[in-house]
Amino acid sequence: MIFIDNRQTKVTLDKETEDILTKIIDYCLKVEKVYIDYEVSVIFIDNAQIREINREYRKIDKETDVLSFPMLEYPSKKVYKDVYLNYKFDDSFFDEGRLVFGDIAISLEKAKAQSIEYGHSFLREICYLTIHSVLHLLGYDHIEEDDKIIMRKREEEILENFNINRNL
């Protein structure tokens, strides 16, 4: 189950775009072999709201584009596809039988500005940010260069599956 909550009024987000994002989240989880019921929450906010959250949780007093709040504790730092097939998560990670992966906060205001800065569509930008964040919920990271290469490759593969490229 995917919960989407638009808490901002600065950037218009239509139902069609929300539907695409829902399909992308579902696809991300399925391609990573998540075959059980799951829960992901997405909130859309503005720059002021994401700055406040960034300050509170990361102690960084500036706006950012997306924040991920994973709920799961993985058996190792490096998580790849088979973890969901081979690992038994504690019951505390479930809500009404759904595995709770976590929360995503996206600043639509920042995404809009970045789409202009990078010269591609707003749709491409928020799809990318959504995929990026879902991969964080799945245990991917980009601190180490090797991990960054793996994560970027996976992001691009998912975007390509939806025919979303930098020219869009």
Rank of each mutant, 00 (worst) to 15 (best):
I106M: 06
V34R: 01
N161W: 08
E109K: 09
I24V: 11
C28W: 01
V31W: 02
Q8R: 07
I20S: 02
R166D: 15
I149H: 09
Y27R: 11
E96P: 00
K88T: 06
K10G: 04
D82V: 02
N6A: 01
D103C: 02
Y84M: 08
M151V: 03
D14S: 11
S92H: 12
I158G: 09
N165P: 03
I24H: 06
N167I: 05
M1F: 03
F69I: 00
P75R: 03
K78A: 03
E73L: 07
D147I: 00
R7S: 01
V42S: 01
E32K: 12
I2K: 06
T12G: 07
I150P: 08
G139P: 06
E160Q: 13
V100K: 15
N86H: 12
S107A: 09
E145A: 13
R51K: 15
I25M: 05
E117Q: 11
Y80N: 12
I60C: 12
N47E: 12
D90G: 04
L108M: 10
L99S: 08
E73G: 10
R154E: 12
E63Q: 11
I131V: 05
Q49S: 11
R51Q: 14
K153V: 05
H136D: 01
K23G: 00
I36F: 02
C127T: 07
I60Y: 11
H132C: 12
D5S: 14
N6R: 10
S107F: 10
G97C: 04
E63D: 13
K78Y: 04
L72T: 02
V100G: 00
H120M: 02
R51Y: 00
R55N: 13
D103Q: 13
Y38H: 05
D90W: 05
L67M: 14
Y84H: 12
L99W: 05
D90Q: 09
I4F: 14
M151Y: 01
K30L: 11
R58C: 13
R58Y: 15
I150T: 11
E32D: 14
G119E: 05
S121A: 01
Y87N: 03
I4R: 04
K88M: 03
G97M: 07
K110M: 14
D82C: 05
P75K: 08
D65I: 10
F93D: 08
H136T: 06
F3P: 00
S133Q: 08
V40M: 03
S92T: 10
E155R: 09
R154W: 07
I53S: 09
D19Y: 07
D5F: 01
I116H: 07
I149G: 03
E96C: 02
I158K: 10
A113C: 00
K153C: 07
Y84F: 15
R152M: 13
